[in-house]
């Protein structure tokens, strides 16, 4: 087991290096460069100005050298300096990440809380009206664009209930009530969207497990259906479901971009859009890199959890 974990961890390294390479090169293919942005309407007119700025933001020298320098800075925990604010990128990320993290966690939790019971219900009552309704609902949530749902909530929440999510973001620890007011609607919308995928996975895994011999045996022994489902079937179905939940992390990170924009939440997603629009490429790099690393690590964690829980699993 330890050997497996070590091997799996060793595989992380090339992936992470690949990610840094992609992030580094991709930003250099952005349309127009940061110098154009900073010098505005007359940038092209003054090569001297351009040269000075390039020097200041270390855009000179060979691409290879730039990459190595950049990588060693990252290793030292330095993601560069934002071009618009002149603050270290890590400062901004440290401020914004917890907000997005909270939103994503809430959404994932909501999706699990909805999806697993509904998925079980759907599987147990396969092809019945309940099954149909549950599946329709979950696919329905998948089928509705999240920004549209959010707009409906914003518009009619106010028209019907006079409800407005406050503009001033407060930390969870600082002002839980206000934090909750801001976060709950986007978390519900994002969670509802995610629950579709999780629910379908739960359903098909449950169906499969329910046909296995051991569940039949359990039922034959006269155990109540509830005990069979929870103790035997669910325990065996939960692993693949958790894998799907782990894979959802990537979807969550993308989904927060839209919802943060909609609900004015100052998280990583809104920072990303601002940074793309102002061509603040150190910030763009930082966010894309961070989100990719989060996804890789969460997949890694799911894999490890998988092996720890189910010793049968051995990957090549």
């Amino acid at each position: 087991m330890q050997k497996y974990i070590l091997r799996r961890a060793a595989l992380l390294l090339p992936t992470l290096i690949g990610i840094t390479l992609v992030v580094f090169l991709a930003v250099r293919f952005l349309p127009g460069d940061v110098i154009d942005q900073m010098t505005g309407e007359r940038g092209s007119a003054n090569p001297e100005m351009r040269r000075q700025l390039e020097e200041r933001y270390s855009l000179t020298g060979s691409v290879g050298r730039q990459y190595v320098e950049w990588l060693s800075d990252i290793a030292a925990g330095d993601l560069g300096t934002s071009i618009t604010t002149n603050r270290p990128v890590t400062t901004d990320l440290r401020q914004r990440l917890p907000i997005t993290f909270q939103l994503g966690t809430m959404a994932l939790l909501i999706s699990i809380l909805v999806a697993i019971p509904v998925g079980i219900l759907s599987a147990v009552t396969q092809d019945s009206v309940w099954d149909f309704l549950a599946r329709s609902l979950s696919i329905g949530f998948l089928a509705v664009p999240s920004f549209w749902m959010g707009l409906l909530v914003l518009t009619y929440g106010f028209v019907w209930f006079g409800w407005v999510p406050p503009l001033n973001y407060r930390d969870l620890w600082e002002d839980p009530a206000q934090n909750f007011q801001i976060m709950i609607a986007p978390a519900l919308i994002l969670g509802a969207g995610l629950s579709g995928t999780v629910m379908r996975m739960t359903r098909s895994m449950m169906l499969e497990v329910l046909r296995h011999d051991f569940t039949r045996t359990a039922r034959a022994k006269g155990l109540s259906p509830r005990v069979v489902i929870i103790r035997h079937a669910l325990r065996n179905a939960i692993l693949p479901v958790m894998t799907i939940v782990g894979l959802q992390v990537s979807v969550v990170v993308g989904g927060t971009v839209v919802l943060e924009q909609l609900f004015s939440i100052p998280g990583l997603g809104s920072l990303l859009l601002t940074a793309i629009n102002t061509r603040d490429y150190p910030v763009v790099q930082g966010i894309v890199l961070l989100s990719a690393v989060v996804v890789v690590l969460s997949n890694f964690a799911v894999d490890i959890a998988y092996t720890l829980v189910d010793p049968r699993v051995r990957y090549a």
Binding site: G254, V257, I276, V288, A292
Partner: peptide, 17 residues
């Protein structure tokens, strides 16, 4: 490994980029 790297980037962020 290439697929790993590719999949590490969240879909929507990849598309926007």
């Amino acid at each position: 490994r290439f697929v790993d790297i590719w999949q590490a980037f969240p879909g929507l962020i990849f598309i926007i980029f």
